[in-house]
Structures are given as structure tokens and as C-alpha cells.
């Protein structure tokens, strides 16, 4: 009888341990879009989440990876297709376009002007704040490889890693909130 209870207690302890390791007060977000408005939304939600006492992990993949490039950094040794991708995609967060009403640059410029007027932080400021707050940015290795981006041309950011889908899945499965933008 007592052995039975001991076994049950051991079993319960195991389960409690699993639960405690389970979901954290953490936000895990896939940032897929390379649009100005969507990345801005991702950064506002991220910094807000830190204020809301959550840990934040962003997984930048596909078009969003172009936004993390530093226009000042030059890398050599790219093949023709990589060079073309590099030229066609926005070189960094200040070259992004609105998903709607870009109007050959007029709409995006107007939006930036409006943001300034309404005291909405610019993407530059948002990334700086996010870095100070400890928002983690993980970049999808496969996307970078596909578009021919190199680690050396990415912007300086204090918490940046290059990783694969398993890292995102591990982060997401222990996060209370998961988003895709």
C-alpha cells in the first residue's frame, strides 16, 4: 500500500515538473513579412510585451530577413543570383515599403512623416529599444542562405542569433503567446 502511494507521489512529481517547465510567460513571433507596416507592428508588440513582463523571441524568416541588413556593410564573394537578390530586396529597415499604398515611395514617405508627427517611434528607434529591453532576434539560416545574405552584412544588434526551425519550435512550444506576422 505505502509503496503504491510512494509510486503515485513520484509520478505526480514528474508531472508537476513537466508542467513547470511547460509554458513560460514568453512571446514567440514569426516575422515573415518584409513590409514596413508589418515589421513596425511586430516591433511595437514585442517592446510592449517586454513592458508586460514577457520574454520575447522573434524568428525572422523569408522577406523579413532583408530588413535586418546593414546598408553600410559590404560583403564580397557572392554569386550572380545572390547579388541580384541583394539588389532587388530592400537594404535594411529604412528601405522597407508599406504593404498597401506604397505608391512608388510616396505613400511610405508620407507614413514616415506622419509617424514623426504623431510621435510614433521609427523602426530605427524601435530596434534600439528592443535591443535594450533584451528582445531576442533569431534569423532563419535557410532564408539567409536562399537569398544569399551573409552574417557579416546583418545590422549590429545585441541579441541576434542565426538558427533553424527547431529553435523557433522549441521557443514557441514553451511560449504562452505565439504570433505570425
Amino acid at each position: 500500500m505505502s509503496i503504491d502511494i510512494e509510486n503515485q507521489i513520484a509520478e505526480l512529481q514528474k508531472k508537476v515538473g513537466k508542467l513547470e517547465k511547460g509554458t513560460k510567460d514568453q512571446l514567440s513571433m514569426v516575422v515573415f513579412s518584409g513590409d514596413l507596416d508589418k515589421i513596425l507592428a511586430a516591433m511595437i508588440i514585442s517592446t510592449g510585451a517586454v513592458a508586460y513582463d514577457m520574454k520575447v523571441k522573434l524568428f525572422f524568416t523569408f522577406w523579413a530577413t532583408a530588413a535586418l541588413r546593414d546598408p553600410q556593410k559590404k560583403v564580397s564573394g557572392k554569386n550572380l543570383i545572390s547579388k541580384m537578390f541583394g539588389m532587388m530586396l530592400p537594404k535594411g529597415k529604412n528601405k522597407l515599403k508599406l504593404s498597401k499604398m506604397h505608391m512608388m515611395g510616396m505613400g511610405s514617405a508620407m507614413m514616415k512623416g506622419l509617424m514623426k508627427k504623431k510621435n510614433v517611434a521609427s523602426l530605427d528607434e524601435m530596434f534600439k529599444i528592443a535591443g535594450e529591453l533584451g528582445v531576442e532576434i533569431n534569423i532563419c539560416e535557410m532564408s539567409m542562405d536562399l537569398m544569399g545574405f551573409k552574417k557579416e552584412e546583418m545590422m549590429d544588434y545585441p541579441h541576434m542569433n542565426i538558427c533553424g526551425v527547431a529553435t523557433f519550435l522549441a521557443d514557441a512550444s514553451e511560449s504562452k503567446v505565439q504570433l505570425f506576422i
Binding site: 511595437i44 517592446t47 510592449g48 513592458a51 508586460y52 504623431k118 510621435n119 510614433v120 517611434a121
Partner: peptide
């Protein structure tokens, strides 16, 4: 005052 979302929240934090 003068900051937009999430400015006040970040300032409070």
C-alpha cells in the same frame, strides 16, 4: 505625454 503606443507603457515599466 507626446509619446505614442507603446511609449507610455515602456516609460511606466
Amino acid at each position: 505625454r507626446g509619446t505614442a503606443c507603446p511609449g507610455p507603457l515602456l516609460a511606466a515599466k
